[in-house]
């Protein structure tokens, strides 16, 4: 799976959880909680969705690494490669 595919999946899952936002339109380096007004429940739901779809382990301690679209893409790519 290419990084582009992963980025597309991240954006898709964010849009599923928060359908009233446009995650594809924000700066991929920005904190999604700030840029999209997401709360802790939204963030947890996004992580659950990514965990379920990509079957990767995401310990709670790693959450901060997934708070930007770019960060989440890198994190998941590394996990999938490993």
């Amino acid at each position: 799976m290419s990084k582009d595919d992963i980025r597309r999946i991240v954006i898709e899952e964010i849009a599923n959880i928060a359908p009233d936002t446009e995650p594809g339109a924000i700066d991929p380096g920005s904190d999604i909680r700030e840029a999209l007004d997401l709360d802790s429940m939204d963030v947890l739901n996004i992580i659950i969705a990514l965990h379920t779809r990509l079957r990767v382990d995401i310990p709670e301690a790693d959450y901060p690494l997934l708070l930007t679209i770019a960060g989440a893409t890198d994190y998941l790519a590394a996990k999938l490669a490993g």
Binding site: S40, L44, I48
Partner: peptide, 13 residues
């Protein structure tokens, strides 16, 4: 939460 997968994890709420 460390012992749980994401769907089973709790928030503080």
């Amino acid at each position: 939460n460390a012992g749980r997968q994401p769907p089973e994890r709790l928030l503080l709420a």
